[in-house]
Design a protein around this nucleic acid. Structure first.
Lengths: 343, 343
DNA sequence: AATAATTTCGGTATCGTTACCGGAAAAGAT
DNA sequence: ATCTTTTCCGGTAACGATACCGAAATTATT
């Protein structure tokens, strides 16, 4: 039982209405040169037959589809959802519809070759433009309307929207320093992502500026997920000389610290201070101090930028950077050396 | 500057490799009848030129694309995300990729005609099957592989996955009754949705069974959103004879009750008991007692069902119903009449 | 060595739609 | 009444890919 590809086509409509396909196509696209009467008749037939045009056929022939694509390796993590919320809002305000493409798993995504395939799959094909979150490669980006999100382009060749990762991490670290913390553990992000690299760089720089020696033992390799964050936290907190504070490269990792702390009967912030990055909704409930990077805003701005690109407008700036803001909640406490030695 | 639709096509590859398009198509689809040498050569050219096939053209001609669509009016609310999480997991485990279609706003979505258009847009076109969340109409559903989520079909003609809305609401109401509540306010859901209708029916039935007269004043018209939930709660709590408990048709509405309560200096659960429906992640943070309807599981199951449908398997049951479970947290308290009169 | 079988490939039709061109019919101008 | 303009519509050629058929070229069979 192979499902027939298209039940009712424009041909059927034309035949039923007793006109040519050209005429039907014309009413479909709201062209003016068709008599009111025939137009009415054709529209009636369209309704009767329940006809709807094929996206595939249409987009192969015509230019604009009022459809943009959003490509994400995975849509089930909070960051992705925040981006989607912002994009969703921009879509709602626009004439465009949205197509979110995903393979459901970063691991299925993988290579740059794969990514290129996906991009070409949608673009030049059915969508008018593309939004790409944290792309792996960038060499293939043609002159097609593409805006990348959360990715600082090394070669500033194509438009991108991202936040001040370095400065944000700086703020977080300086805050911890100001509270008196000297041994600060770090849970890194996914190493191949520029956001992660920037935050780590800030960690090194700020500590170096403060005259604190770099301690390899305080660096744990995370991947932006909670389970790994948990593992990293366990490792850090189990150190002979554990840190008094942990800076996690994102909130999801920080949530892993909460899990580990609870399991080890450590209180936050009394026994261990935690700072995250992102300010996902969960952070508010967890009372987690974090760096807000306005993810949804990034998505919104990226979508708006894409619309302008599609409409042929020129952008004054290719790279748009959104500021970050330290959100102080209750997950940090001043570090008192005497208390530490007493306990 | 109209962006060229397709930079490098199969024609270019063929010409560059010095073969026909048929041959290129054959290597593209992994057909066997092509010499190893030419295959290598063509693959080299494909790589050099950075060619990728056009989804539109391909899907117009061939049957299967290993792509399924998920249609949602809006992707920015928690319920939608829960569904997406489940679908995402099923996608990750499968060979299929996912295309989430949205217009960003229920209001842009609207009519059944519109919905039909979207369905046909994707189906019969580029996707192999469709997942539809809370569809408006169902009459147009052809024999194409379509599974609906969270929608109890009146005519059980096509496959759907949903949960026991009626029983779930029953559990919630009986729980409130068991705590001694007699005046229970209700914040309804979107009236056109069957889930909403079922829950309301349970409200009426359970109260009637308990011998409680139906009070119109305790019914407020919600729409599954927090702002409206807030408005409804204000109305209920401002009543001359306010309810001692509120049953909200979903968690988002219940979150509105929290807002209203805070604003009116009422404590939950001391002054007002609240029960929600859905068990979205926020409910845990809010300590909200609610009915878990395993939304993500619904999405997962629906996707799995769709895969089987696409692969031509027959389903033993068209309608799949997932059980609900009352999750008791801290948002309800026993109602003591004397305390009520004292305050 | 002649025939049969197999491998490898190209040509053509087609999917459903829109773009473009041109022609018939109707309306207006002189 | 004839000529021009406008209105309306049909025919044809793409878009980029795959399916199918059949023909060379190669290899196997007797």
């Amino acid at each position: 039982m192979p499902p027939q590809k298209q039940s009712v086509t424009i041909q059927h409509v034309a035949k039923t209405a007793g006109v040519s396909v050209s005429t039907v196509s014309r009413v479909l696209n709201g062209k003016v040169d068709v008599a009111e009467e025939t137009k009415q008749r054709i529209e009636g037939v369209i309704k009767d037959l329940g006809y709807t045009s094929s996206l595939a056929a249409r987009s192969m022939r015509s230019k604009k589809n009022y459809l943009v694509g959003l490509i994400m390796p995975d849509i089930a993590y909070p960051f992705a959802w925040e981006v989607m919320k912002g994009v969703n809002r921009a879509i709602a305000e626009s004439d465009y519809d949205l197509l979110v493409y995903t393979r459901g798993d970063v691991r299925k995504y993988g290579t740059a070759a794969h990514e290129q395939q996906i991009v070409s799959l949608l673009n030049n094909s059915i969508t008018d433009g593309l939004l790409i979150v944290a792309p792996v490669s960038e060499e293939f980006f043609s002159n097609a309307p593409i805006v990348s999100v959360d990715h600082l382009a090394i070669r500033p060749g194509y438009p991108s929207v991202h936040s001040t990762n370095y400065e944000g991490a700086q703020q977080a670290l300086r805050y911890l320093l100001s509270l008196g913390h000297r041994r600060i553990g770090y849970i890194s992000g996914r190493g191949e992502l520029l956001s992660s690299q920037r935050r780590f760089q800030a960690y090194r720089d700020v500590l170096a500026e403060a005259g604190i020696d770099f301690d390899e033992a305080l660096i744990t390799p995370g991947d932006y997920t909670t389970p790994t964050g948990y593992l990293c936290a366990k490792q850090l907190l189990g150190l002979p000389q554990p840190p008094s504070a942990i800076f996690a490269a994102n909130d999801q990792s920080a949530m892993g610290v909460y899990q580990a702390a609870q399991e080890m009967n450590l209180r936050i912030p009394e026994d261990i201070s935690v700072v995250g990055f992102d300010n996902i909704p969960e952070a508010a409930y967890l009372n987690l101090t974090t760096v807000d990077q306005f993810i949804a805003e990034m998505g919104y701005l990226a979508a708006k930028t894409l619309f302008r690109l599609i409409e042929g407008q020129t952008l004054e700036t290719k790279i748009q950077q959104l500021p970050t803001r330290l959100v102080v909640r209750g997950s940090c406490q001043a570090f008192l050396p005497e208390r530490a030695s007493a306990s």
